[in-house]
């Protein structure tokens, strides 16, 4: 299979801070590849290297078969980049921004309209409006339209859904899914684990290291222990009690319940009994399927 990106041993430091620590991965053509990790994990640094805006300290990279250091001019023509910070011209209208980006890349809006029509049609009724006056969801759609207007082979989206409400986020992922038919490779970063499921493959990234690369399904099934949910009306007491319990290996709050793993030889039944002894009588213990976030927590606990 042809690779859209191949990275090997990439490191980048800023002073004493190691932003990326010897990371390697590859992205297939036409896949949606997610980098999932908290702020400060190195996602933006990596995206800046991929887009030729930053030179790594060491390692090699090929993006669309090109070297981002020596072939950056050709490479940039083929990349659509949506940075984390909204960076369109706020004092231009919607239409002016789109025309501007088309012109910079030597094309016209008409030529590639088909590619953006699904997305742009939502904001086209407001095309005369100043970009600074758009809502968050509309700005995001315009930014995506501008990143796509030159028909790039690789679309790079740095935290496109941060600060956007749940409805707009869901619509945004639907739009990315539709771009697949145009054979565009998409790399996207997000701090939100629940978005992993929308990607073909994800890399979990933390402190400049990639912890795991796999399909969302395989990341979940990589969870190595049996997982239980424990629920009680007295949440805080439950947390404290679980932490003290020698049968409990890990215990993390997940919404209205706790996700718990047990030491070898322990059972949910003996856990329930232990909780009753500590005065928690309403605890309900169920076996559960691990999610991406459970696996992320497990990988974070393991010494690197």
């Amino acid at each position: 299979m042809i690779k859209a990106i191949e990275a090997s041993g990439i490191s980048k430091s800023f002073g004493a801070t190691k932003a990326l620590d010897n990371i390697s991965f590859s992205v297939n053509e036409s896949e949606i590849f997610g980098f999932i990790g908290p702020d400060g994990a190195g996602k933006t640094t990596l995206f800046r290297i991929i887009t030729s805006l930053l030179i790594p300290d060491s390692g090699t990279m090929k993006v669309l078969g090109m070297d981002p250091i020596t072939e950056y001019k050709e490479l940039r023509k083929n990349i659509g980049y949506m940075p984390g910070r909204f960076s369109l011209y706020q004092d231009l209208s919607v239409e002016e921004n789109l025309n501007f980006y088309a012109t910079v890349f030597g094309t016209t809006v008409e030529e590639n309209y088909e590619l953006i029509s699904d997305i742009y049609s939502h904001i086209e009724p407001f095309k005369k409006r100043l970009t600074g006056k758009l809502s968050g969801g509309m700005k995001q759609k315009l930014a995506l339209s501008c990143a796509l207007i030159h028909k790039p082979k690789l679309l790079v989206l740095d935290e496109p859904t941060t600060g956007v409400d749940a409805v707009s986020r869901s619509e945004f992922w639907d739009m990315l899914g539709k771009l697949k038919k145009h054979n565009i490779t998409i790399i996207v970063s997000t701090p939100y684990m629940d978005e992993a499921i929308r990607c073909n493959r994800v890399a979990l990234i933390q402190d400049g290291n990639i912890l795991s690369v796999d399909t969302p399904q395989n990341v979940r099934t990589g969870f190595s222990r049996k997982l239980f949910t424990v629920k009680s009306a007295e949440k805080y007491k439950l947390i404290k009690t679980l932490r003290k319990n020698p049968e409990v290996l890990t215990a993390y709050p997940f919404g209205d319940s706790m996700h718990v793993t047990l030491i070898d030889g322990s059972t949910p039944d003996s856990l329930s009994k232990g909780l009753v002894r500590e005065g928690i009588n309403d605890a309900v213990v169920h076996e559960a399927e691990a999610g991406i976030e459970d696996r992320f927590l497990e990988l974070m606990e393991k010494p690197q």
Partner: peptide, 17 residues
């Protein structure tokens, strides 16, 4: 928003407390 899953849970524990 934006913190790693462990820090986030420590934060919620503080909120519960």
């Amino acid at each position: 928003g934006g913190v790693d899953p462990i820090t986030r849970r420590q934060f919620w524990e503080t909120i519960y407390e």
